[in-house]
């Protein structure tokens, strides 16, 4: 298989750091261009030099580069539609940071544009690409714990992004740009893994989401109770609830209760610990980012389906938005997906 030539649009989202590195070193990908739209354009420029990729000030210039076949878009959420639609029009395949967009209407436009242009559209959610969760799914599918009944997940709980050093993350605290705070930022990961584990979608959501911990202008933590159509019950906590001293960067945890067994999945990535003034976990492998980039590239190079298409990402957003609605109205909300 040859290598897919990719561009990264914007370093507004810190995931750009991980994805760019993975794309540059990937077996089937090559990083050929980076654009510096939005915050952290200085970081984008430095990274372009580091990877030997062409640097463009704006995504429009990058999209006109014929050498670029596909783009990873990490711009602020409120600009997803604008950029993704343009990328589709320019015939670029799209790996679009989550959440897919601010609204379901915008999501539809993105999906439509990609379809019209005949380009692949994928939204990356990490947990289903982690090894422990894949093992768990294998065990579920093999019937090792009997029919699945209940899932509790923290997926994922992180420190607020503004604690990240050296990056401007202020747009995360502006709901007009991000759509919401900690829950919007992290719940999509958990919701995707619930879709994937249950092979089902929820019919009803109740949630309590709020600015409870830090006093930010956006929510920092939320919990949702999700009742799935085929009967699985799930409780999901997501947000920025981890204090500075918390040793893990990301906390991901799943308790899966089957009728005949129980799966306890507690770590997302293999790590080691550094002890100084506080303990810090260093991940020595991120198979999730690798899995996302590889499956995206494979789908394009072999003209197969992407594992997480725009339609799934839209359903994901619908659940997130239903959770916010439930929390606002203080009542359970029915969802029809």
């Amino acid at each position: 298989m040859r290598k897919l030539r990719m561009g990264v649009i914007s370093y507004a989202h810190p995931h750009a750091l991980r994805f760019a590195g993975q794309i540059a070193s990937g077996r089937h990908t090559k990083l050929v261009a980076i654009s510096g739209d939005g915050p952290n354009s200085d970081v984008a420029r430095v990274e372009a030099r580091r990877f030997g990729a062409h640097f463009y000030k704006t995504y429009e210039e990058l999209l006109r580069d014929d050498n670029v076949e596909a783009v990873y878009i990490a711009i602020e959420t409120y600009r997803h539609k604008e950029v993704a639609v343009r990328a589709a029009e320019e015939g670029k395949h799209i790996l679009l940071e989550k959440p897919i967009a601010l609204t379901l209407e915008d999501a539809d436009e993105i999906i439509k544009a990609a379809k019209k242009a005949g380009v692949k559209l994928m939204v990356p959610y990490n947990p289903r690409f982690t090894e422990p969760l894949q093992k768990a799914k294998e065990m579920l599918d093999a019937g090792e714990v009997g029919p699945l009944e209940y899932i509790y997940t923290i997926s994922e709980n992180v420190k607020p992004p503004i604690f990240l050093q050296g990056l401007d993350m202020s747009w995360f605290l502006d709901a007009r740009k991000s759509g919401g705070g900690g829950f919007m930022d992290t719940a999509p990961h958990g919701i995707d893994s619930l879709f994937w584990l249950t092979e089902d979608v929820p019919k009803k959501v109740y949630a309590d989401i709020g600015a409870k911990i830090y006093g930010f202008p956006v929510d920092d933590i939320g919990t949702a109770v999700l009742e799935f159509r085929k009967g699985v019950l799930a409780v999901l906590t997501a947000g920025w609830g981890n204090p500075k001293g918390y040793s893990y960067g990301i906390e991901m945890k799943y308790y899966l209760v089957g009728r005949e067994g129980f799966l306890d999945i507690r770590t997302a990535y293999p790590d080691f610990t550094v002890y100084q003034e506080r303990a810090e976990k260093i991940y020595w492998d991120r198979p999730d980012v690798r899995g996302i980039v590889e499956s995206f590239a494979r789908a394009i190079l072999k003209d197969e389906k992407v594992p997480i298409p725009g339609e799934v990402a839209k359903k994901n957003l619908a659940v997130v938005l239903a959770a916010y609605e439930s929390s606002r109205k203080r009542k359970a909300v029915k969802v029809s997906l």
């Binding site: 714990v145 209940y150 309590d208 709020g210 919990t223 109770v225 409780v235 209760v257 009728r259």
Partner: peptide, 23 residues
């Protein structure tokens, strides 16, 4: 198997999970 999401005054959230069915 029973899940309670309890809203407390002051925007506090209590999540209670009780079960006799953990396998």
């Amino acid at each position: 198997h029973f899940i309670m999401m309890i809203a407390f005054e002051g925007g506090k959230t209590g999540i209670a999970e009780v079960s006799w069915a953990y396998p």
